[in-house]
């Protein structure tokens, strides 16, 4: 379950931001986990409570947004929606589709005190 390592990375980012921006406790965390990204939101939630226990983010509210997948079909030269990484282009049925969105995993926002 690599979500544990991802959640530990999230806590490290929070800790470095605390040092940089001068806060001592985190009330809420917003994540963007793209629909095509490597993270399962439920597993991140499961890990988040455990990993943050005893830290400045203990008890913080976690909000996870899931930007949908998008790709660029090289045959049709159009942006197409992608529910899964290997979905074909809905216009030509081909697989020459480059993922352009929904692949990222980012910590976007914090509510701090």
């Amino acid at each position: 379950m690599h979500e544990l390592a991802l959640t530990e990375s999230i806590l490290r980012i929070v800790e470095t931001e605390a040092e940089r921006q001068g806060f001592s406790s985190v009330r809420a965390v917003w994540l963007e986990l793209g629909a095509l990204s490597h993270a399962d939101p439920d597993a991140i939630r499961f890990c988040f409570d455990t990993v943050t226990r005893g830290s400045l983010a203990e008890g913080a509210r976690l909000t996870i947004e899931r930007p949908p997948g998008q790709g660029w079909c090289m045959i049709c030269s159009v942006t197409v929606p992608l529910a899964r990484r290997f979905d074909p282009c809905p216009h030509c049925g081909g697989h020459q589709v480059q993922v352009t969105d929904g692949d990222d995993m980012r910590l976007t926002e914090l509510e701090v005190a």
């Binding site: 990222d104 976007t108 005190a113």
Partner: peptide, 19 residues
């Protein structure tokens, strides 16, 4: 007042940035 003094911060950092 101390508890209510919260603020929202834009962070926008890649979770995998260290790796």
């Amino acid at each position: 007042a101390a508890e209510d003094a919260t603020r929202r911060l834009r962070v926008e950092r890649d979770i995998l940035e260290d790796n």
